[in-house]
Write a protein that binds this DNA or RNA. Structure first.
Length: 276
DNA sequence: ACCCGTGTTCGCTG
DNA sequence: TCAGCGAACACGGG
């Protein structure tokens, strides 16, 4: 379940696996209609078949794949939702469970889009005109690619009445930040997640911006590999400082116990002693 | 059986 | 008019 680091890793993987490759065949599961909307699964597969992968980019949690169909550019927009993942399978390797789409490359490799919960999206973008898509236009600058402008962040946080943790989930502010890194960044910055976004001082906003980047980069370093290890998978260690650690000792002050509260129907984890 | 979930969208409300 | 809120989506795992 991906936030910015997992999507960044997916982008790097797709680049490595598929740049310059032709899609010899494309399959889209008929039962997974909602992933391919507004196209029918069959129309989705046909739109991509035979095209060649030229570029893979990331913007927030979106993957932007540029292909070439004959002479014409063609776009593929991929959002991983809660449980989406791109997986590579070599010739003869068995498919993963819940494979919803398959890109058969001209070297025999198959790229599977696996998504048990079906919250992800795969959309064909005619002419690769990503700039015309309202959902991308609404996103703020990408924290990793463009950096974080503290002035802009302060303006965005200053114009909402929501708690700062809830505001951080708004993809118009810092796209790519999700429920984990919102909690992690607020912990690193020492800011109480329940405070109103507009109550932060300029110094706190700067600290928060830096903390978001630190949290994202740290996860990126930890998780970079051919298959991302997700925290909820059996056997995986929880790599986070506070996320999903309710009741544990605070890793900073060693005295407080980490708490869990629910905000906007999502869990927030924090140390009541360190985050004032 | 029941609860929980790294995300987004839609419709209602004040 | 619009920010903010809660439900809905769908399925697996504890």
């Amino acid at each position: 379940m991906p936030e910015l680091p997992e999507v960044e890793i997916a982008a790097r993987n797709l680049r490595r696996w598929a740049s310059g490759r032709r899609l010899a065949d494309v399959e889209a599961e008929p039962s997974a209609r909602r992933i391919f909307r507004p196209l029918a699964p069959r129309a989705f597969a046909e739109a991509l078949r035979g095209s060649r992968i030229r570029e893979v980019r990331r913007r927030g949690k979106h993957l932007l794949v540029t292909l070439e169909a004959g002479r014409a550019p063609l776009g593929l927009l991929s959002h991983l939702g809660m449980t989406g993942k791109w997986l590579r399978r070599g010739v003869g390797e068995p498919p993963p469970s819940h494979s919803r789409a398959r890109l058969h490359l001209d070297d025999g490799v198959v790229l599977h889009y696996r998504d048990p919960r079906l919250f992800g999206r795969l959309r064909v973008v005619p002419g690769a005109r990503f700039d015309d898509l309202p959902e991308l236009a609404a996103l703020g600058p990408d924290p990793l690619e463009d950096g974080i402008d503290a002035k802009r962040l302060a303006a965005m946080l200053g114009s909402t009445r929501r708690p700062v943790k809830v505001a951080l989930l708004d993809q118009r502010i810092l796209p790519g930040v999700g429920n984990i890194h919102a909690s992690e960044a607020l912990f690193i910055a020492g800011i109480d997640p329940r405070r109103g976004a507009r109550s932060l001082s300029p110094a706190e906003v700067r600290r928060l911006g830096r903390a978001v980047l630190r949290s994202i980069r740290r996860t990126l370093r930890k998780e970079y590999g051919p298959e991302v290890a997700y925290v909820e998978e059996p056997g995986a260690e929880n790599p986070f400082r506070v996320y999903a650690r309710e009741g544990e000792r605070c890793p900073r002050c060693r005295a407080g116990r980490l708490r869990r509260v629910v905000q906007a129907q999502r869990s927030t984890f924090f140390c009541p002693r360190c985050q004032g």
